[in-house]
């Protein structure tokens, strides 16, 4: 375990170096923006809209006391999306999507000697392969999360209108109530940490594959499992640090 951590840190040390060639780095970065970011918009959108709707409906059904105003529905949906749902659950989903993609791509390059080929050309493979993925994730995931928060809140609104449980005016009043901008900062901080976890852990696991296609498969499963566990673990730590 300690050895694993050591190896991880050494690899990150290699990764976070100045790229050999900026134009090459930029091109790689654009490819990763598409592969890791843009390609995830669809799934993030669907899950966010539905989750926002579900949170809104459940809250509305659970309010049976006349003393609790219906504006609570909008308020709860907004808080849920910002504080926990968008940063954590969407990051977990991205761990599955992006993590397995990163680990299997880099792992395949390892077992087919493409990484050796890079090294003997005089390229730093960790820097060339992993840094664009980490950078792309850390820049694009916050955008995805903001997008998810917006869609979740919109999803809740649609649900209220369709089910007639809460009026549009109440919902909109609710989502504006007691708004603390810091919660969004908190969501973005969490997202950044989770993005770093997903991309670097998956990159590490792919980079150290030894063997063949079976090991590549195993590495991509591990990438999802390890990054999910680490996300939950750091969620707890960050919540303690930032909110309490």
């Amino acid at each position: 375990m300690l050895r694993l951590l050591g190896e991880y840190l050494i690899l990150m040390f290699e990764t976070f170096k100045k790229p050999d060639k900026w134009p090459v780095f930029k091109r790689q970065l654009m490819i990763e923006f598409i592969g890791l970011g843009v390609d995830s918009i669809g799934i993030v959108a669907i899950i966010s809209v539905f989750s926002g709707a579900i949170v809104a409906i459940q809250t509305a059904y659970n309010i049976d006391s006349p003393f609790i105003p219906l504006t609570m529905v909008g308020f709860t949906t907004r808080q849920m999306m910002i504080l926990e749902f968008s940063p954590t659950i969407i990051s977990l989903i991205l761990a599955g999507k992006a993590g397995s993609r990163i680990a299997s791509e880099i792992g395949t390059m390892r077992v087919t000697q493409q990484i050796d080929a890079l090294r003997v050309m005089g390229v730093n493979p960790a820097n060339y392969l992993i840094l664009p993925k980490i950078t792309a994730s850390m820049l694009f995931n916050p955008i995805l999360i903001i997008f998810s928060i917006g869609l979740g809140i919109a999803g809740g609104w649609f649900a209220c209108i369709f089910t007639n449980l809460v009026s549009s005016a109440d919902y909109i009043e609710g989502i504006q109530a007691w708004f603390e901008p810091f919660t969004v900062t908190y969501a973005i901080i969490k997202t950044l940490v989770f993005a770093l976890i997903i991309s670097s852990v998956s990159g590490f696991l792919g980079y150290n594959v030894e063997g063949g296609s079976v090991e590549v498969g195993r590495a991509s499963t591990k990438a999802v499992v390890y990054s999910s566990i680490l996300i939950i673990f750091f969620d707890l730590i960050l919540t303690q640090m930032l909110l309490v």
Binding site: T112, Q113, Q114, D116
Partner: peptide, 9 residues
């Protein structure tokens, strides 16, 4: 390299 090791992307 024995297998060529071309970059497949």
């Amino acid at each position: 390299f024995q297998g060529g090791a071309l970059f497949d992307s």
